[in-house]
């Protein structure tokens, strides 16, 4: 495949079968390898889509400053595109994310403003919104509420899957900004409504939820519950167990959030087996495991890995 530039190569990722982890010939699992995007994550799709939309709408001009709350991947993707197009980029990132993310963001040219660990991404969003109010000339693309994020999956991820696997019955992805699930979900609702949309939501440790007041929660503006059919909460132990199974059984080396998604996909697969239904379940591999090696997720016992992940934004 030949492209005019790296940016042009975003998307059109491989869909690969999981012959070992699939429970039976009638209930099959398929991995959509989003780690094969240019900066190594699914976020290249959303970042490119949001920048192109902002340029088209006249919100971004050469020399502009982009501001974004991000725990890493979106910032890396935005920085890759921004540098090539002459934008400055500032990322607000929780301080309890892995060191590799900071190193990668810096390498791709982003400036980082840390937000307090307690409260996780909620705090990053709050800090970024404050900065945006102080600097009206900065452009916050705001992945949690930008329709161009979901549209990247409505126009790309969803149609690619249906094209490669017309018999698809389930789509399983992570719930973060909700962009992947909302975009692909809307695509399937319109083009193959019998496809069930399954969300996997990471469940963090006490530190992340500790200070949350129940009246001040956060639900991304993009989220529309009618686009999904089931939602699983997955803790770090199950996520790590599955991410290890994925590399041991199928050779796919994925990031920890993909372990959570695989866990939900396998739960769905078990339900299909029990009900005697045929199923072709597609799940998203969000990124590779490289950025998470320092978290300890890939070595030692599950207990050790679980302890190390406590208090970290592992997904």
């Amino acid at each position: 495949m030949r492209f005019d530039s790296l940016i042009d190569s975003v998307g059109r990722t491989p869909l690969v079968g999981l012959p070992t982890l699939s429970p039976s010939p009638d209930v099959r699992l398929w991995a959509k390898l989003e780690d094969q995007n240019p900066t190594g994550s699914i976020k290249d799709r959303a970042a490119l889509s949001m920048i192109l939309r902002a340029e088209k709408e006249g919100r971004l001009h050469p020399g502009a400053t982009i501001l974004e709350p991000t725990s890493g991947n979106t910032g890396i993707s935005l920085a890759m595109v921004a540098r090539q197009r002459g934008y400055r980029i500032i990322c607000v990132m929780p301080e309890n994310t892995s060191i590799e993310r900071t190193q990668l963001l810096t390498m791709w040219g982003a400036e980082i403003i840390p937000s307090p660990a307690a409260g996780g991404s909620n705090e990053a969003v709050r800090v970024a919104k404050g900065l945006a109010a102080e600097h009206p000339d900065w452009v916050m693309l705001y992945q949690y509420g930008n329709p161009a994020n979901a549209d990247a999956h409505y126009e790309g991820t969803g149609p690619e899957i249906l094209g490669d696997l017309p018999e698809v019955t389930h789509f399983v992805a992570g719930l973060g900004t909700t962009g992947t699930l909302m975009g692909a979900g809307r695509f399937f609702r319109e083009h193959k409504p019998e496809v069930r949309i399954v969300a996997a939501e990471p469940r963090y440790g006490e530190l992340v939820y500790g200070l949350r007041n129940l009246d001040e929660g956060f639900i991304p503006e993009l989220y529309d519950a009618s686009m999904i059919d089931a939602r699983f909460s997955v803790g770090p132990r199950d996520a790590v167990r599955r991410v290890r199974e994925l590399v041991e059984s199928e050779g796919i080396f994925a990031g920890i959030s993909t372990g959570a998604i695989l866990h939900a996909a396998l739960a769905q697969a078990a339900k299909c087996v029990k009900a005697g239904e045929k199923a072709d379940i597609v799940f998203i591999v969000c990124d590779g495991g490289w950025k998470y090696l320092s978290t300890g997720a890939y070595e030692g016992t599950l207990d050790e890995a679980e302890d190390k992940l406590d208090g970290q934004l592992w997904a």
Binding site: T97, N122, G176, A200, A225, R231, S233, I284
Partner: peptide, 29 residues
């Protein structure tokens, strides 16, 4: 919310988890 809301059945041995809604977890937002 996707299994019958408050009418969702529970049985001995089940685990009920209550959590506040938080921002973005997955895929390294």
């Amino acid at each position: 919310r996707f299994t019958g809301n408050l009418g969702t059945p529970v049985a001995d041995g089940d685990t009920v988890v209550i959590l506040p809604a938080v921002a973005g977890g997955s895929a390294g937002v």
